Computed example of a mutant assay.
Amino acid sequence: MPSPSHSPTGLPFDDIRDLLTRMPGPDEAAIAAVRARDAELTKPAGALGRLETIVEWVAAWSANPKPRVDRPLVAIFATSHGVTKQGVSAFPDAVNRQMLDNFAAGGAAVNQLCVANDIGLKVFDLAIDVPTPDISEEDAFDEAACAATIAFGMEAIVGADLLCLGEMGIGNTTIAAAVHHALYGGEAADWVGRGTGVDDAGLARKAEVVARAVARAGGPGLDPLEVLRRVGGREIAATVGAIIAARLQRIPVLLDGYVVTAAAAILHALDPASLDHCIAAHRSAEAAHGRVLEKIGKRPLLDLGMRLGEGSGAALACGIVRNALAVHQGMATFEQAAVSRG
Score class of each variant (00 low, 15 high):
Thr196Trp: 00
Ser274Pro: 08
Val210Met: 02
Ala285Tyr: 02
Asp199Asn: 15
Ile279Cys: 08
Arg212Ile: 02
Thr174Asp: 08
Cys164Met: 13
Leu228Val: 01
Ala188Asn: 02
Ser284Lys: 09
Asp223Ile: 05
Glu286Phe: 09
Val227Gly: 09
Gly233Leu: 00
Ala215Cys: 00
Ala178Val: 08
Ala215Met: 03
Ile244Trp: 05
Asp271Cys: 06
Gly218Arg: 08
Gly193Arg: 06
Ala273His: 14
Val240Ser: 04
Gly197Leu: 09
Ala269Tyr: 07
Glu235Tyr: 05
Val253Glu: 07
Thr261Glu: 10
Ala201Asp: 15
Val198Pro: 09
Val227Trp: 08
Cys278Tyr: 06
Ala288Ile: 06
Glu235Ser: 14
Gly171Phe: 02
His268Val: 11
Val198Lys: 03
Ala262Pro: 11
Leu248Tyr: 03
Gly195Leu: 06
Ala285His: 07
Leu183Ile: 13
Thr173Phe: 05
Ala265Met: 11
Arg247Gln: 13
Gly193Ile: 10
Ala281Tyr: 07
Arg234Lys: 15
Tyr258Leu: 09
Pro224Ile: 13
Thr196Gly: 15
Arg205Gly: 15
Ala211Gln: 14
His181Tyr: 12
Gly218His: 09
Leu248Asp: 00
Val209Gln: 02
Pro252Val: 13
Cys164Thr: 01
Gly241His: 12
Leu183Gln: 13
Ala245Ser: 15
Leu228Tyr: 02
His181Pro: 01
Arg250Cys: 11
Ala265Trp: 08
Asp276Trp: 01
Ala263Ser: 14
Leu183Arg: 12
Thr196Cys: 14
Leu183Met: 12
Gly166Leu: 09
Leu183Ala: 13
Cys278Glu: 09
Gly185Pro: 12
Ala182Thr: 10
Met168His: 05
Glu226Lys: 14
